[in-house]
Design a binder for these strands. Structure first.
Lengths: 212, 212
DNA sequence: GTCTATATACAGATAGAC
DNA sequence: GTCTATCTGTATATAGAC
C-alpha cells in the first residue's frame, strides 16, 4: 500500500522529524476537536505549518495518519513500552502502569475517540480497527511483555501473558470508565484510586507463585 | 415526576401485563433497528397494537421506556438477579454468569445500544445514564449480591463485593468485546471461551479464602 | 366508583421545503 | 423567512373491566 518506509533514507533530503511531530500534534488536536471527517488534511497541514504534500509524504494517507495520531496520543499519556522498566518487580511497576492507564482512559480524549470511531463505523470502518491496534492492542502488548519477563524471573505465575494483560487492563476500566463513556456523574477521585489499587492487589494475588 | 407507580393497584382495573410486555418488546425491536430518535412512540405503540396513550400510561415518557427496554433486553439475555442461584458455590455459578454475560456483551445489540447512546450524547445525554443504570449497573449489583452472599458463607474472601463485581464483569469484556466495539475481526469462539474460563479461574484464585 | 385504555385534539419544538 | 410536516407530551372525553 504505502511504500513510504521503503524509500532509501540515505538518499536525498531526510524527512524532518520536527515536522513529523508537528503534523502528528496538529492531527491529534483537529481529529479530537472536529472528528475524522470534520478535520481535513488541508486543515491539519495548515495547523502544522507545512504543505499538504508534506503530510502525505510522511504518512501516506489520512487513515494512516489517524492511526499514528492515536498511537502518539496514547504513548504521550504514558502507556508506552519504552516507559516500562523490566527490572522493577510487579509490586512497583504494576501500580505505576495502572495509574497511567487509568488517567488515559478517563480523559475526555478517550471518549471522543470512541465517539469518532462509532459514528464513522458505516463510512470508515477501518478507523475503529486502527484505533484498536494503535491504542488498546499496543498497551496490551506492552503489558504482556512485561508480565512475561516477570514470569520468566519467577516473580509471577503466568502461563498466558496475553490473557493476563487483557484481564488487568480491562479490569482497570471499571465503573469509572463506563461512567465517562455514558455521560454519567464521574466517581470521586479517591474512589477511583481505591478501585485501581484493589485491582492491582487482586491481580498480583491471583498470579503470585505458590510458595515452595 | 410520573406518578405511575403511585396509583393504588388494588382498586379498579389492573394494567394489562401482556400489553406492557408487547410494548417493551416492540420498543426493543424499534430502538435497536432505528435508533432512539428514529423510533417514534407512535411507531412503538402501533407495533405493540396499543394506543399511544397506553404507552405513556405504562411508561411515563419515551426516555423511561428506553431505560426499561434496555433493562428487559439485558434480563432476557440472562444477566438477571432472578436467575442467580445463591446456594450454588462460585465454582459452579460464576462460570455460568460469565458465559451469560459474555453472550450479551458480544451480541450485535450491545454494540447498537452503545452506538445509540454515543450518537445521541449531545441531544439526549440521559440515554447513556439510563443504559448504564439499567444495563451494566444492574448486572454488577446482581453479581455483587451473589459475591456478598458467598463471602458470608466463607466461600470467598471478599471485603468489597462492589469492587469485585466490577472487576469480574469488566475483565470478561476482554479483547473480544473491544473487537466488536471497534469493528475488528471477531475472535474465534474457542479463544473467547478459553479467555472466559481463565478469567473465572483467576478471579476465584484471587478471592479464595486462605486455608486455615 | 375506580381505574384502564382508546380516540382526538392541542401546545411546543424542530427540521426541511420552498 | 415562511410554511409544512412530524414528534413529544398533555388534556379531555368516552367506553369498558374490576
Amino acid at each position: 500500500m504505502s511504500a513510504i518506509e521503503a524509500k532509501n533514507p540515505a538518499r536525498g533530503r531526510p524527512r524532518s522529524e520536527t515536522k513529523r511531530k508537528k503534523i502528528l500534534e496538529a492531527a491529534v488536536d483537529l481529529f479530537l476537536a472536529n472528528g475524522y471527517e470534520g478535520a481535513s488534511v488541508e486543515d491539519i497541514a495548515a495547523a502544522a505549518g507545512v504543505s499538504r504534500q508534506t503530510v502525505y509524504s510522511h504518512f501516506g494517507s489520512k487513515e494512516d495518519l489517524f492511526g499514528l495520531a492515536v498511537s502518539s496520543r496514547c504513548k504521550k499519556s504514558g502507556v508506552d513500552p519504552d516507559r516500562i522498566d523490566y527490572s522493577q518487580p510487579p509490586e512497583v511497576m504494576l501500580p505505576e502502569i495502572a495509574r497511567r492507564f487509568a488517567t488515559l482512559l478517563l480523559g475526555e480524549d478517550a471518549k471522543r475517540v470512541n465517539a469518532i470511531c462509532t459514528s464513522c463505523a458505516d463510512t470508515h470502518p477501518e478507523l475503529g480497527q486502527l484505533f484498536f491496534e494503535h491504542g488498546p492492542c499496543q498497551a496490551k502488548q506492552a503489558v504482556a511483555d512485561y508480565l512475561a519477563s516477570q514470569a520468566q524471573r519467577g516473580r509471577l505465575a503466568i502461563t498466558n501473558p496475553g490473557f493476563a494483560a487483557w484481564q488487568l487492563l480491562c479490569m482497570l476500566k471499571g465503573e469509572a470508565q463506563l461512567r465517562v463513556q455514558f455521560n454519567c456523574e464521574p466517581l470521586p477521585a479517591d474512589a477511583i484510586d481505591a478501585y485501581i489499587d484493589d485491582c492491582v492487589a487482586m491481580f498480583i494475588r491471583a498470579y503470585t507463585p505458590a510458595a515452595v
